[in-house]
């Protein structure tokens, strides 16, 4: 059999819920052996958790098994969940914390590479803040992408948020300046800043983000109160570089993990959490306006394992 045939055959099996496999795996085996660990490794690698984090998880699991003497499947299941949860830093969180506003206007800046679902997430986020009873203004600072304004306008209408925009090609900082001033003048509770998608390796564009932040701070020195990086659940190991670079330039307070409704598992957030300690704050699970949920590691890991 040729190389390609082998490969095709290997990939024929449908990729059903990856953590479902853990479940099956766990119940099929009553003891931890190399075979189990190898299968577990494949499962973790296959959901983008990454080599490093996978190795750490497996090492930890081995150690735990040694000291705690968990040997049976149901106990192992609990233990595995436990180890997975441990990877997430504190601050992944409670709803009350996420929507807590200490000062008006509360400025939320949304950043990310191209095509991860920033604009859509902003629409949903605006809707969430609205539901909490806040008045929301959106600053359309993606002045680069063709028709970004129109797309955001549609979302603003759906969520009932106000929107500040200038024409395509204008300085994004100018949009933000106008928006913050207007929010202060009109006593708005929340300002959400949409920024153009940019690859984290483009120095000029990253500097532009810095400038936007500076402009915000000129009016409100303590803002932005949240800087959220949007990461697509299908993203591979490059997600770590994204988080690192955005963090280096403007500092991140959290992540939004989008497109979790597909077959992708978003395992990269395990690695980001483990290596950079940036908490996941929201997850996007669909295309509707109320499909943005507050991230909760308990139910995240639980859902992954018990689906």
């Amino acid at each position: 059999m040729g190389f390609f045939d082998k490969l095709k055959q290997g990939l024929q099996k449908t990729h059903d819920n990856i953590f479902n496999k853990v479940n099956k795996l766990v119940y099929a085996k009553s003891e931890v052996d190399d075979d189990f660990l190898e299968q577990l490794e494949e499962i973790l690698l296959g959901s983008d958790v990454g080599v490093q984090t996978t190795e750490i998880l497996i090492e930890n699991l081995k150690k735990r098994v040694k000291t705690d003497k968990y040997e049976y499947s149901n106990e192992l299941n609990t233990l595995l969940k436990d180890e997975l949860k441990k990877v997430f830093s504190e601050g992944n969180g409670q709803k009350t914390q996420v929507f807590k506003i200490t000062k008006k206007p509360h400025v939320v800046m949304i950043v990310g590479v191209n095509g991860v679902g920033k604009t859509t997430s902003i629409g949903k986020l605006a809707h969430n803040y609205k539901n909490e009873g806040y008045s929301v203004m959106i600053a359309a600072a993606d002045t680069f992408r063709a028709a970004a304004n129109e797309q955001l306008e549609t979302w603003a209408q759906r969520s009932g948020a106000e929107i500040i925009q200038l024409q395509q090609g204008s300085d994004p900082s100018a949009v933000v300046y106008n928006a913050i001033n207007s929010a202060v003048a009109n006593n708005h509770d929340v300002v959400i800043i949409d920024t153009a998608g940019r690859l984290h390796t483009k120095v000029n564009l990253m500097e532009e983000l810095k400038k936007i932040k500076r402009v915000v701070q000129k009016i409100l020195p303590e803002a932005p109160h949240e800087t959220l990086l949007v990461i697509d659940a299908t993203t591979g190991q490059n997600g770590l570089n994204q988080a690192k670079e955005f963090s280096k330039y403007i500092g991140l307070t959290g992540l939004i993990l989008t497109k979790l409704d597909g077959t992708a598992k978003g395992g990269i957030v395990f690695r980001i959490s483990n290596e950079l300690k940036i908490p996941v704050k929201f997850i996007g699970v669909g295309e509707q306006i109320n499909d943005l949920q507050v991230f909760d590691k308990e139910s995240f890991v639980k859902a992954l394992l018990e689906d």
Partner: peptide, 14 residues
């Protein structure tokens, strides 16, 4: 397909 896609790329492509 986005070059940054991870393991899921093969599922979608297939």
């Amino acid at each position: 397909v986005d070059a940054m896609t991870g393991q899921d790329a093969v599922n979608t492509a297939k």
